[in-house]
Design a protein around this nucleic acid. Structure first.
Lengths: 192, 192, 192, 192
DNA sequence: CATGAATGAGTGTTCATTCAT
DNA sequence: TATGAATGAACACTCATTCAT
């Protein structure tokens, strides 16, 4: 049955997220995942070739979810600063909307060998639109003439960094904090 | 009686660092550590009460190493901007000097349950001098009137973030990158 | 799916009995048990939550086996002396029928911390019928006006004691010995 | 130094007894014993060839202690019944005087492979005077014409059995109970 | 004599994965 | 498709014993 399949996959994905956030990922066993999802371990292996495969798919799904929010009201033709801030606001929005999932993504990002290499690309690969924006800002001399990774550090990663701290404190980013983060990110990146 | 072999402790510490960097810490087993250090598993338990104890001690040792560099030529009475940058430069220096150890510290920092709670203090607790500097900057209105954690995100964590990316690429921060990071951090934090 | 293999449980139970009788219970390791039973250690943990759980279940099974024989042809309304002797004969019968199992039960009885507290009841708890018989004998002044435990020592435990000696000599109680034990037990307990 | 040696041996012996009574004998490790005795493990191996050797010596020492009390005021030429009861009273006395040591002896008696075979002789070998008394009683037809082991079961072992139950309840035999045990033992054994 | 250091073999238990139904 | 049963390899940790000082 089709629907049943989907519900099991969904349950498994959620179980991965729950277990990582509840027990930490070094206690993430397939047995625990299957139990929490309410399916048998053997069933898990019908849907995924192995544990790595499963985690990879969870990772991608979370990534897609966050990416989906990223380009809300984003207009590549719009004024640069506005689009820059738009992007960061969307990102902050996304990780505030799905704090547990964002936490899981952070775990995956800092533990590359949890998932297969091909599924994974470190350094916050946010895809073509972001790359375009970077190039645009560079050419128009609106941002500093630095390597892209350094911008990642002062934008997405800086937001992530505070979000992680807050998550560990049982909180999420406040509206004020998001504003502050964006202001600081822009101050850091913009060309004077 | 047989004398305490300091070289074995050193070998064990280095083994922890090597294994984490080579296999990731979810594959960090006492057997692997002992083997790489060239001692028996039982010997490990002479020096440490358990795995957590050992990791905690490695963590503290690394932290001390980095902290030792942090306050080089640091003068709490000196001009604020200079001391701010001095601190960050020292930090960048430290993690460039010990890239593998810095990588291990990142792992520990994002996996608090690896070590005992008492040994561990989350959110980049850089101690009193840093706290003093922050308070000073705040009072003199030299930096933005934000919470301390947000500054951590745009200073130490931002540097860490790029260092991590570079480390994964098999590189370390270049001199130029350190300069750029410091400039951006200052631009982000300073009060206009 | 693969069906539950009752023979494996049986093999495990028998292995526990064999290992205890062969190597003593301080050499009773799960590895040894599994090996002797011809199953993997991991399989053992499918059927039992841990070692203690397993031993507890073996204990209960043996106890049930012996208890089943205990009340053969036992009539609470029958003449006291006859029922007293009936009980002891049945008991002797039981431990002669299952000498290895009786030996194991003795080990469990003198090492209460081998099994969980709830599964275990010390001091030869032979249940209600025995308690009834004791009370009856006491009230009718057919036995000495002593505490119940002292009777246990001169009845079941005395039989057990000789059975243990014989078992260590590779023998079981002879028919004559059982008769003698019962006569002496009665002589010891009866009110003159 | 001579005195120091003895005090260490004494400490080790007492440690064995304490550990067995406190933690059970299946948790009886040389490390625990040495620690409790306040000596190093290696030191232990100066005095004993191995663990078994040590336990054997503890066993023998305890046995000697109890045996020493056994023949108090015992006169092989005295009236049989009186000597019979004298012996049992002395035995009860002994295990009431040293309840922890008696408990340890019971452990050794029911776990023969804890000590070397030669040091150990099962079935409560109480030595020549007891054997003489038995033979005497048998010849004079003062006791039943049964095998010696069966008498052990209804005398020493019966006393032991109740003492064990009481010890597990945190008590020792009362004076009344000793009287009752002796009466019952005599009633069981005597020839009518 | 005394002991901290050292270890190979073992402890109970869990792992990710596969099998048979 | 779904799953309980099964397992070899690994897990963290302890053992009795020996070594070197």
């Amino acid at each position: 049955m089709r629907t049943k399949d989907e519900s099991k996959i969904e349950a498994l994905h959620q179980a991965v997220i729950d277990v990582i956030n509840h027990d930490g990922y070094q206690n993430l066993s397939v047995a625990k995942i299957a139990k929490k999802a309410g399916v048998s371990v053997a069933t898990l292996y019908i849907y995924y070739s192995d544990k790595k495969d499963m985690l990879g798919k969870v990772y991608l799904k979370i990534k897609d979810l966050i990416d989906a929010k990223l380009f809300n009201e984003f207009d590549p033709q719009g004024p640069f600063e506005q689009q820059f801030k738009r992007l960061l606001r969307n990102y902050a929005d996304a990780i505030c909307t799905y704090p547990e999932k964002a936490a899981v993504m952070r775990v995956f990002n800092s533990n590359p060998n949890l998932v297969a290499e091909d599924v994974y690309s470190q350094s916050m690969d946010l895809g073509k639109p972001v790359a375009d924006l970077y190039r645009h800002g560079l050419e128009e001399k609106l941002i500093r003439q630095y390597e892209p990774e350094i911008f990642i550090s002062f934008t997405f990663n800086a937001i992530d960094s505070l979000a992680q701290i807050r998550f560990m404190q049982g909180k999420t980013l406040t509206k004020d904090e998001v504003d502050q983060l964006i202001e600081m990110a822009w101050a850091a990146c913009k060309q004077n």
